[in-house]
């Protein structure tokens, strides 16, 4: 007996019609649709989790102007999430929208980078995480603008404008705080050291990445490394911060193997949807 529901049985087909695709079979691993779905959840989950982390600061930032700026960034990231996960849901074709994907999947189905689930720490840690991510995010989006998939190219063009501002902001703050007081310097250096091991994952491709790259849908992760290195080296130098020597990279987030932190984040993020599954909000 097959373990997966068969789309050809009349029952399943009827169900799919009646419930807008909910009865359709899951995408087959290794198929182009499944690859595309996975690639889109990697994008959307990453912006979702980072947006969530940044939003945790709301009302608690060191100064009002920063509170407002951070909220703008979180709003951009949540907006991008709606687009990436919305498209992922369409590609999947099983009736799940962006909210269903964000609020009804378990940790092992999340494909975000480990970097963005790191806890906020102090404000310097949050800014450093943001910079290390933004410096990758911008070249990623630039490459996605040239995707063979027009929907992806369109979303990337919109998000690219937002993220160009993000990286300008986070790079500038890293420079200022690195080259500020002794204390701000020390805090930024220790943030950099603590986060460094989580930056490499973004540039390590797997089979899904390779197939998406081959098809021109998404860039090969390895191809984004030199841009990132250039930005990071220039900013760290101006910030008088020392780039850690280690090239060890924690990985697994993109494949659904996460740190313990993600579970706690999802516990609060998904709580209402999980507790009241019949409700609409």
């Amino acid at each position: 007996m097959p373990s997966l529901p068969d789309v050809m049985t009349p029952d399943a087909a009827q169900l799919a019609q009646a419930a807008g695709g909910e009865g359709r079979a899951p995408l087959e691993t290794g198929s182009p649709e499944h690859d595309l779905f996975t690639g889109l959840t990697r994008l959307g989950d990453t912006t979702l989790i980072l947006g969530h982390r940044v939003s945790e600061w709301c009302g608690l930032a060191p100064v009002l102007e920063e509170d407002i700026a951070l909220a703008n960034m979180a709003l951009d990231l949540i907006g991008q999430t709606q687009l990436w996960l919305g498209l992922a849901g369409e590609v999947e074709g099983r009736g799940r929208d962006a909210d269903a994907l964000a609020f009804r999947r378990d940790g092992w189905e999340f494909h975000n980078l480990l970097l963005v689930e790191r806890p906020n720490g102090d404000f310097g840690r949050t800014l450093m995480r943001q910079f290390l991510f933004d410096a990758y995010h911008l070249p990623l989006l630039k490459a996605l603008e040239g995707s063979t998939n027009p929907r992806i190219a369109e979303i990337a063009a919109k998000a690219g404008k937002e993220v160009a501002y993000h990286v300008e902001r986070s790079a500038d703050l890293v420079i200022r705080l690195g080259d500020g007081t002794d204390e701000s310097h020390a805090r930024m250096q220790s943030s950099l050291d603590a986060l460094w091991g989580y930056t490499g994952e973004a540039f390590i491709g797997d089979a899904v990445d390779a197939r998406l790259g081959e098809a021109g849908v998404m860039p090969a992760p390895e191809s984004l490394r030199s841009d990132w290195d250039r930005t990071v080296n220039a900013v760290l130098a101006e910030a008088t911060l020392e780039r850690p020597a280690s090239d060890f990279a924690h990985k697994g987030g993109k494949q659904g193997r996460h740190s313990e932190h993600l579970g706690h984040l999802l516990t609060s993020m998904q709580w209402l949807q999980r507790s009241y599954p019949d409700a609409t909000w």
Binding site: L48, G59, D67, I68, S268
Partner: peptide, 29 residues
């Protein structure tokens, strides 16, 4: 900002999360 900020991380949909965040941000403004 605090009593409403209390629910930003638990808002039940992406849109509600964005709306609440924008609102609490307005209060800072």
């Amino acid at each position: 900002q605090l009593p409403e900020g209390n629910w930003i991380t638990r808002a039940p949909t992406l849109e509600r999360k964005a709306i609440l965040l924008a609102k609490v941000q307005d209060e800072a403004g």
